[in-house]
Amino acid sequence: MVGPMLVAGWRDVGPLRPTHRASGVLPARLDRCLVRGPGVTSASALVFPRGASDHRPISIDLAVHRAAA
């Protein structure tokens, strides 16, 4: 998907850098990480250099925050 993710109840916490480059096309951010719920956030999000694929690998460290009892 190109553009903002508008899926009810889900948030995009993936990296903001382009993750895909097709021949003759501008780089685009296609690869995403979606989470649900208020207690999950991204502690870090990275885009790695491109390898054999036209997609660049992404890495996301998720943090889970528990509500105080």
Rank of each mutant, 00 (worst) to 15 (best):
V64K: 04
R66P: 01
G24C: 08
V40H: 06
R56D: 05
R56M: 15
G3D: 00
G14Y: 12
A43D: 03
A63D: 11
A22N: 11
V47D: 02
D31P: 02
A52W: 13
P57Q: 08
L6T: 03
V40G: 12
A68M: 07
R29D: 09
V40M: 10
V35E: 06
S59V: 12
R29W: 08
I58F: 10
G39Y: 07
L26M: 11
I58S: 05
R36C: 07
M5R: 00
G3N: 05
R21I: 08
V64Y: 10
I58K: 04
A22C: 13
G39K: 07
H20I: 05
S42W: 01
S44Q: 07
P57T: 03
G14E: 03
R32I: 04
A8Q: 05
A22W: 10
S44L: 09
L6F: 01
V47E: 03
M5F: 00
D31F: 06
R66I: 00
A67T: 15
A52L: 14
S44H: 09
A28T: 15
R11E: 03
S59E: 14
V47C: 02
L16T: 12
A22Q: 15
T41M: 11
T19S: 12
D31Y: 02
A63S: 11
D12M: 13
H55I: 08
C33M: 15
I60Y: 04
H20A: 12
V64F: 07
L16Q: 12
T19D: 05
G37Q: 05
H65T: 10
A52E: 14
R29M: 14
A63W: 06
A63P: 04
I58G: 06
V7F: 06
I58M: 06
V40S: 02
M5P: 00
G3Q: 01
R56V: 06
V7S: 01
D31H: 10
P27N: 09
G14N: 02
R17Y: 03
S44P: 02
